[in-house]
Design a protein around this nucleic acid. Sequence first.
DNA 1: TTAATTGT
DNA 2: ACAATTAA
Length: 64
Amino acid sequence: MSQKQLPPVKVRDPTTGKEVELTPIKVWKLSPRGRRGVKIGLFKSQETGKYFRAKVPDDYPETG
DNA sequence: TTAATTGT
DNA sequence: ACAATTAA
């Protein structure tokens, strides 16, 4: 199986306030039943080492 | 156990 | 309010 690395996402790093490109550690769908919901990624700030969550594009692949 | 994430 | 996820 060719393991393609996921592309970085442009997100606002809430710990620095800067917009950065980061590859999410994990991605999942967050949606109530019967509603559309959003995809969420778990990220780790390079600047501060702090974890944060942010929306990722709807077409971004989910990770296991 | 809670905070925080986004859009309906 | 509600969905899943996980660091703190």
